[in-house]
Computed example of a mutant assay.
Amino acid sequence: MKKILFKCLPLAAVLMIAGNAQAQEMTTMSTGTPIPLSTWSIGVNGGVLVPISPLGGKNDFSNFKANFGYGLYIKKQFTPNFSLRLDGVRGKLSGDNSEPFESGLTPSSAVNRFETDLTYSGSLNAVVNLLNIDMFKKENYVQLYASAGAGLAGYKVKTSATSTGTLVDYAGDKTISELIIPVGLGAKFRVSDKINLDLGWTVNYVDGDNLDGVYRQTSDRYSYGYAGLEFALGAGKQKAWHNPVALTYDEALSAKQTANALKGELDATKAENAKLRADLNDLLKDTDGDGVADKLDKCPDTPAGTVVDGAGCPLKVPAPVVQEKIIVTEADRKVVADAIKNLEFDLG
């Protein structure tokens, strides 16, 4: 089982990288506007390694030591709420029996001190974002998450029969490899579009009882509490902080506001049209019915049937002209002819 898992971890890492060669992807708003989102990130952290679990269980030593540990990871965000994370951790674990147990019992063991060098610890973990502090922002600033996975840990153990004695190799300086099941909780704080502050605590359950050099046919465990920074890769904002529900809500709200604005403009246009119609009716009003609007009528109250000019005033009718017929007779012509003959011209 350990050999199979040891072979599968690098393969899983390769598949994660090969299946998603780009560090970003595009999502599309309902309006059709594309938004680039960063889906790959790397993280570095440091913290405390202790050979106990806060979830309880039997401890082989009464006094555990807190030692420095450090780690790094690479993460692929598949959805805003789910990602796969490849973790690696190194450090040291130690403890002794220099104090009685909390129950008051005095430790009695052939091994009273140990020191374990955690040569490597690699695991593939599924990470689920449990809670965004503000569900109605497109991007939040605080996230709570949980993780669980499987991996391998390789370590070398040294033990001593006394709490202050010399440490000797537990397995002949051999690196022991065991299956581990890490389970953790954490919180992330968005510092910027590309950087997160990451705080977490992971309990690693070991499929073996060699971690502290005391073999009692029970499974050992150790914890890693850490603080670190996560750096998003690629262009665009981080998909882990992207809230599609809030974004859809904002788009719907924006659409409603646009519709309300259009309705307001339509109502204003209707009111303006009604005013123009009233003004037009007022311009075309013809009280006396002479065909000339009141505003242009210089002669209002013209009697019905009166013919008016363009100014609305009655047209002036010229007086009738009576033509007399003149009849010239033959006698008249003779008188005229005689008169012409009798004309005398005084030429001086």
Rank of each mutant, 00 (worst) to 15 (best):
A110R: 05
V111W: 02
R113W: 02
R113P: 10
R113N: 09
R113C: 04
F114W: 04
E115G: 08
E115H: 07
E115N: 12
T116P: 06
D117E: 15
T119G: 12
T119L: 09
Y120M: 14
G122E: 08
G122K: 01
V127C: 00
V128F: 10
V128I: 11
L131S: 04
N132K: 06
N132F: 00
I133H: 00
F136Y: 10
K137G: 02
K138G: 11
K138A: 14
E139Y: 13
N140L: 01
N140A: 08
N140K: 01
Y141E: 09
V142T: 05
V142F: 10
L144S: 04
L144I: 15
L144A: 13
Y145F: 14
Y145S: 03
A148I: 09
G149C: 05
L152I: 15
L152G: 11
G154M: 04
Y155R: 10
Y155G: 09
K156E: 15
K156G: 11
V157L: 03
V157H: 08
K158S: 13
K158Q: 14
S160K: 02
S160C: 08
A161N: 09
A161T: 15
A161K: 05
T162P: 03
S163D: 11
T164V: 05
T164M: 01
G165C: 06
T166K: 02
T166Q: 08
V168K: 01
D169W: 12
Y170F: 15
A171L: 09
A171E: 13
G172F: 06
D173S: 15
D173A: 14
E178Q: 15
L179D: 05
P182K: 04
V183R: 00
G184Y: 03
G186R: 00
G186M: 03
A187L: 11
K188G: 04
F189Q: 00
R190N: 04
V191N: 00
S192Y: 04
D193V: 07
D193P: 03
K194V: 14
I195C: 03
N196H: 10
L197T: 09
L197S: 02
L197Q: 02
L197D: 03
L199A: 08
G200H: 04
W201M: 10
V203L: 06
D207I: 06
D207V: 12
D209S: 15
N210A: 14
L211G: 09
L211T: 13
D212K: 05
D212P: 13
G213L: 10
G213Y: 06
V214I: 14
V214F: 08
Y215C: 02
Q217Y: 14
Q217N: 15
S219K: 11
D220I: 09
Y222Q: 06
Y222M: 10
Y222V: 11
S223I: 12
Y224H: 11
Y224V: 08
G225A: 14
Y226A: 10
Y226V: 09
Y226C: 01
G228C: 05
L229R: 01
E230S: 08
E230W: 00
